[in-house]
């Protein structure tokens, strides 16, 4: 059976070589190997580095928190409104625990912010979404929530990722696209090329494809809105109410911010009118929004934070064309939104 032994040996060697390669490159940031810059943006870990650079000479005192929907908010616009030096610390798929972890981490940097602007989405307190794997893999943030947590070994992280319900399945790991992403990651590294989604030094996002399409006039907003309809339908259909656990975490954030003398401004973010109407019609978004407003009103009284309801894009003066899709605003709309929240006369809000 020499033939069979040799063949099995070669197959095993190739599969092991594949695992080693994709693990080392870690293009999708699944294993937190951290050797090569991942192909996909991991805003949590990358923003810690950008923040350290941004605050090296001149302390940053205004922080923008939020999910991907806040990623386009320019710190410069906030600086204009507040006079503070600002940084965008919004991270993808942010939930309440992300905000608390980031705030606590900022305080460990001997740089307690004076202002926290939270771009708030209804799903911040999602009752069915698990904790994002990228938060768990980020030991700097994760330890802010679980001080007892020890740093996992690379091997342990690998097995945890492979066996976790929301981790990487063997079929995904051994797929052509996974290998292609690893190769692309190396190619980008070798050619110093930008990624499709990249971060600017102030923490804002650069969606290169969308920006290029908008500049070329080929951007099809209707298609992008249609795509987000499916995504947000799934997201809100799975959400039955506000998570009690996450409500406590968010309240803890406000409590610690108050203790740290950090002013908090919560901006309840809008959806594009078309997506808004769709999720109100198809899901329980209206009810979730009402619960959210009620919860935030309660907290704003209790902790003295400002609550700005920006959920109606027309009322706050957003342009219907300045969207990347049904949920993500472009920079001009982000600036309008911040202006509304900070500078618009109170009379214009009614």
């Amino acid at each position: 059976m020499k033939v069979i032994r040799s063949y099995v040996f070669f197959v095993a060697a190739l599969l092991l070589g594949h695992v080693l390669f994709v693990w080392l490159v870690d293009a999708r940031k699944d294993f937190a190997t951290g050797i090569i810059r991942p192909l996909v943006m991991d805003s949590r870990s990358e923003k810690t580095i950008l923040y350290a650079k941004a605050s090296a000479d001149n302390p940053v005192t205004g922080i923008l928190l939020g999910s991907s929907r806040t990623l386009t908010f320019q710190p410069a616009d906030l600086e204009k409104e507040t006079g503070l030096r600002c940084f965008n610390f919004a991270v993808q798929s942010a939930r309440a625990e992300d905000h608390l972890a980031i705030y606590r981490w900022l305080r460990t940097q001997n740089n307690t912010p004076k202002l926290l602007v939270i771009g708030y989405d209804v799903e911040l307190l999602h009752d069915a979404d698990p904790i994002d794997a990228r938060l768990q893999q980020n030991s700097a943030f994760w330890r802010q929530l679980h001080p007892e947590a020890s740093e996992s070994s690379a091997m342990r992280r690998f097995f945890e990722t492979m066996t976790s319900e929301h981790g990487v399945s063997p079929a995904t790991l051994f797929s052509a696209t996974y290998l292609r992403d690893a190769a692309r990651s190396l190619w980008l590294l070798a050619n110093h090329a930008p990624r499709i989604t990249d971060l600017a030094p102030d923490g804002t996002v650069r969606w290169q494809n969308w920006i290029a399409e908008r500049q070329a006039g080929t951007f099809d907003l209707a298609t992008h809105i249609s795509d987000t309809k499916k995504e947000y339908f799934t997201r809100y259909s799975r959400m039955h109410g506000l998570s009690e656990e996450r409500k406590k975490v968010f309240e803890q954030l406000l409590s610690e911010a108050k203790a740290g003398e950090t002013q908090v401004v919560i901006c309840l973010l809008p959806l594009n009118s078309e997506l808004h109407a769709y999720v109100v019609d198809k899901c329980n978004y209206d009810r979730l929004l009402r619960q959210t407003v009620s919860f935030l009103n309660e907290l704003s009284v209790k902790y003295g934070c400002d609550l700005e309801d920006c959920t109606d894009p027309l009322r706050i003066g957003l342009s219907p064309d300045e969207w990347f899709d049904g949920a993500h605003v472009t920079e001009p709309n982000a600036a309008r939104l911040m202006h509304y929240a900070f500078a618009a006369p109170a009379a214009s809000r009614n």
């Binding site: 070669f10 197959v11 594949h18 063997p170 051994f174």
Partner: peptide, 25 residues
């Protein structure tokens, strides 16, 4: 052929197929 070189080629062929097989079962 059954030489080691060819056995490696078969294994490589299997590996490539396997990556595509997982792509769209």
């Amino acid at each position: 052929p059954g030489s080691r070189k060819w056995l490696f080629a078969y294994a490589a062929g299997f590996y490539v197929c396997y990556l595509f097989m997982n792509q769209t079962p």
